[in-house]
Design a protein around this nucleic acid. Structure first.
Lengths: 231, 231
DNA sequence: TAACTATCTTTGTGATCACATTTTGTAAAT
DNA sequence: ATTTACAAAATGTGATCACAAAGATAGTTA
């Protein structure tokens, strides 16, 4: 359990060690590189990224506050386990949060932003064709993030990302057992609705994107996947 | 800026230092003991609670992930400043989050829970009569928390508390300049709706409680308060 | 008086160490 | 073969130290 395969990540000049550790772990969790129930150790991570326990501990505390990690009673730190019920809660919350975020952003969307959204969506389609799930996943997040952050007073993004983080490990399992993630593309609808500045239509597109995308997993399918993964 | 008046807080047996630091700071921020824009230092807090920088840093990282603190470019850590726009975002988000949390909890509410809610509400009324704002505030939170945590799979509570944390410092300002906080009591409505297991009515009561309570501050009033407080 | 500079102090950061607890591994006993 | 007992290793925790960057202060100059 001590040895942990963390894909390398460039470290910008001037970034602190704890911030780097945080970002690297966060990304690993977000794209499903760490399985639910897997535990991480402070010293293990410190060794893996050639630093010391102190900054790693700060990174782990942040991740636990973000819901990405869970601190057990025996002080061990692990990626939370997934259940069908928890998955349902996460999808319902994701839908509510992102619909709200989208509604609050509509008034601030510029034509330039919309052009950017089209770009991202095209890139995502490319990634899906290449069967590059990880990239498609990140581009999908980038699409959503671009919309929500159009609102300059936005304060919801950390919560949206928290939900993404909590869904990440399950996505990792799904990607292991499903040939290709089923990406539903309601992005075109969202873009059209944004062009018209139609709040309700935007919210509907976001909701559909979530519920028919990752949220579309049936309860039975989730239980099967978790059993297959030995959860 | 180094000296910080932290009201003492009992420390349960076996609680780690960083956890204790986190809880103590969190409570101070939640009830408005620290003003927006005020900065805290690692060594200052460590000295105030007779510990060392290491665990304090962990506590501060957690609080920054919770939105209670803001890390500046110069790495200084401060309580985020409030603006009328940000306040509006916070109230809107609070309403959406708590309505959702309440809806998801309705099915799990027991008669015992409802009795507990009545108790809390009575205690809050007492505190209001005594003009004990801090206690009333905490009891109000306890009321809401009791509802939302009835759902055993609930994952939204950390986000709700994050919003409370972000509103806390402004409440501190409000309490300095307003004789008594205007507590609107839609709790009776919420209790009645819970008794009937009426999701929509519960959500409506929660929404009204928020929007007519703290959310009832007019934009003009907020700007005045902030100006009075030298923000 | 205002602006600049040099010095001292404060502060954040990360590595290291010591300690207590937990976990793991091994050998003996039933 | 399973359980128990004990030793060894691993792990989380918190204090301390050294270093660099930022901030404050005092003194000097224009």
């Amino acid at each position: 359990m001590g040895n942990l395969a963390l894909e390398p990540l460039e470290r910008p000049e001037g970034m602190t060690t704890h911030e780097y550790a945080h970002r690297r772990l966060r990304q690993a969790i977000m794209v499903g590189s760490i399985r639910p129930g897997e535990s991480v150790t402070i010293r293990g991570i410190a060794e893996a990224m050639e630093s010391s326990p102190t900054p790693v501990r700060e990174a782990l505390r942040r991740l636990s506050s973000e819901g990405a990690l869970q601190v057990l009673d025996n002080r061990r730190i692990m990626v939370p386990r997934m259940t069908a019920d928890r998955f349902g809660e996460l999808i319902a919350l994701r839908s509510v949060l992102e619909q709200h975020a989208a509604r609050r952003a509509v008034a601030h969307i510029t034509e330039r932003k919309i052009d950017r959204l089209v770009e991202i969506d095209n890139a995502q389609d490319e990634a899906i064709k290449r069967k590059d799930n990880a990239t498609a996943l990140l581009l999908n997040q980038e699409f959503h993030r671009t919309i929500y952050t159009a609102n300059p007073e936005q304060i919801i993004m950390p919560m949206v990302e928290s939900v993404w983080l909590q869904l990440g490990p399950f996505l990792g399992i799904a990607m292991e057992h499903v040939a290709q993630l089923y990406f539903v593309d309601r992005h075109q609808e969202a873009i059209e609705a944004l062009r018209k500045r139609d709040e309700t239509a935007v919210a509907a597109a976001i909701d559909a994107d979530i519920r028919e995308g990752i949220g579309g997993f049936e309860r039975r399918a989730i239980e099967n996947l978790l059993r297959l993964a030995g959860q």
